[in-house]
Design a protein around this nucleic acid. Sequence first.
DNA 1: TCCTACGATGGACGGAATCCAAGTCAAGAA
DNA 2: TTCTTGACTTGGATTCCGTCCATCGTAGGA
Lengths: 137, 137
Amino acid sequence: MSDLLERLRGRGWRLTSQRRVVAEVLDGEHVHLTADEVHARAAERLPEISRATVYNTLGELVTLGEVIEVSTDGRAKRYDPNAHRPHQHLICTGCGAIRDVHPLGNPLSDLPTEQRFGFTVSQAEVTYRGLCPTCAG
Amino acid sequence: MSDLLERLRGRGWRLTSQRRVVAEVLDGEHVHLTADEVHARAAERLPEISRATVYNTLGELVTLGEVIEVSTDGRAKRYDPNAHRPHQHLICTGCGAIRDVHPLGNPLSDLPTEQRFGFTVSQAEVTYRGLCPTCAG
DNA sequence: TCCTACGATGGACGGAATCCAAGTCAAGAA
DNA sequence: TTCTTGACTTGGATTCCGTCCATCGTAGGA
């Protein structure tokens, strides 16, 4: 993600301090932050950044394919900067911790044609759930 | 799901008219309703049922394992009464339509031990996305 | 340096879900 | 059958998450 800003500039992005800070927050963290968490971390460096701008920027990054939006539960969406390596997620049902995981095979190929009902299926998202070592005690 | 009410009674549920109506709505519909849709259908039979009661009852049914909660996107959760047959979901990214699907194999077995990071993994949920025949035009 | 269109701001707004205090009632007890 | 009680329901307030919008500011080209 280090050359993210260069790539964005190449796509005609106006490089504002707000966008730079949001991109840096995502770059530095290999976790899965909510929009509000991104806003909080961004505000440490740029105190007057608004929530609307964070939402706008995250939405743009998702549209550009630089960040993946993960809605694991009914709560706040999380933003995953690891967009260029296909992966799935493993979530602890105790504490909510999220890990990127790489299952075997391609989940998409497990859905036979007669189970697609005429849909043009383009994506398969797998969420594994269980207890992490800490929560399992 | 026909003997659902009997099972619930056996678990010490107080059998109120509201709970009966919510269970019947889910029983009769083999689709994936939102809480508000359940409330609307329930209100046809029991006009004064409140939204809070519908939320309470749905939450209890989920806790008891009689209904599955599906949070597909950032929208309203959907409630799937088909809880006793393992299945996955195929969602149209255009109109939001949901279908139950049965992929080959067991998704859980695709996650090798070294990718479990000490977690006790108990569930794998697969969401396929694509365009339905109507939206693909 | 100036211009201007694109981006930022923050407060209002909206949908979804939860919370809470007060009222109601299912079902066991007598 | 009636009584009693605690579980259940109610609906309005509240929270949470996210979007919208009119206005202001500024990045970057001329």
